[in-house]
Design a protein around this nucleic acid. Structure first.
Lengths: 191, 191
DNA sequence: ACCTGAACACCGTTCAAGT
DNA sequence: ACCTGAACACCGTTCAAGT
């Protein structure tokens, strides 16, 4: 088969999961697909759009949570999805810049309305929650990359139930606890 | 004079303010300073460390706010400082990864303690607030860059009182109002 | 001590030309 | 229609050698 946008997105996704965002280059991608770099541009308009498509694929499971999952659980899943990807939050920041209505957002809005917020309020609150989530995961990933704790587990061979680090922080609260607390503060209350 | 770390940081700072993070390359910096790229590495260990030093310079005014400025005002100043710099939030994300105690953070902690939080609580809350601020400014900048609103003012020739965009959002609340609301939700209350 | 020259191993993107 | 070849204009970093 001749190569296609879908095949390129899939290869980029694999490269991202296996090596991280830094290693997803158009040239490396071309190598992986056994074509010259220029060939990719017949199928995708730019690296940026390609990355946005990859992000969409990754976040698709958060589009319509099965049953009625709570807002906090939804956002915990967002963190769990993005955290294991190297520079995953940077990718999501790019993707949300291109398309602010990406997957967790509509479900987040609906969930906030279910909690009593009017449509406008829910829209606003959803953005605030997303901003916090993106900042928190980005900070957590950068901290881990830049001064890494000894014994990074390096997921691989771990089953699908692998959730994340939770290495006992040096003087800070663990990333998950901090994140949960932030979510809690941003949840609607009678105020 | 022979070139120095300080001179390199200053040139990088100028390049950042004038052209944005994308144009701060070691090679371009070298050109600006009339040396070959390798010369820079005699004075700075890496681009990453250089950028962290530049970030420190930029955030220095937020280290000890004159008088006793409120927490919300402090964080508004953080936004106002970072927003006019192209990809400023990306830079700050790098910088805070390297050094989580950068300028607004200690003042933020002190301010939160003044509002009644115990030391541990203030530390935790400060991180949460910083995560939100970083995410919010990063999202705002990416949105502006990726699908720019017509008539970007393009600061320059504008006086020192230039504060920022505030273009009437299409369907969303303006960036400043959204940011302020996020801050408000994260401020300590009796709960 | 401080810097150059030159290399190593890369980037994203374009586009005439081939099949 | 789909891809190659080749270029354009770049990257960060290292390091022997010069002064």
């Amino acid at each position: 088969m001749p190569l296609s946008a879908a095949a390129i997105v899939e290869a980029a996704h694999r490269l991202l999961l296996d090596y991280g965002l830094q290693d997803v280059s158009m040239r490396r991608l071309a190598g992986e697909l056994d074509v010259r770099p220029g060939a990719l541009y017949y199928h995708v308009p730019s690296k940026q759009q390609l990355l946005a498509d990859v992000a969409h694929r990754i976040l698709a499971p958060l589009a319509d949570p099965p049953g009625t999952v709570g807002v906090e659980e939804l956002m915990r899943r967002f963190r769990a999805t993005v955290l294991p990807i190297r520079d995953g939050a940077d990718l999501m920041l790019i993707a949300f810049g291109l398309n602010p209505g990406l997957p967790p957002v509509p479900a987040l809005r609906r969930g906030l309305e279910r909690l009593g917020l009017a449509s406008d309020q829910a829209h606003e609150r959803a953005q605030i929650v997303m901003h916090f989530a993106l900042g928190a995961v980005a900070a957590e990933q950068n901290a881990a990359l830049l001064h890494p704790t000894p014994e990074t587990p390096d997921r691989e061979t771990t089953g699908p139930e692998a959730t994340g680090p939770e290495a006992t922080g040096p003087e800070t609260t663990g990333g998950a606890a901090l994140y949960d607390e932030g979510l809690r503060l941003l949840m609607p209350t009678a105020d």
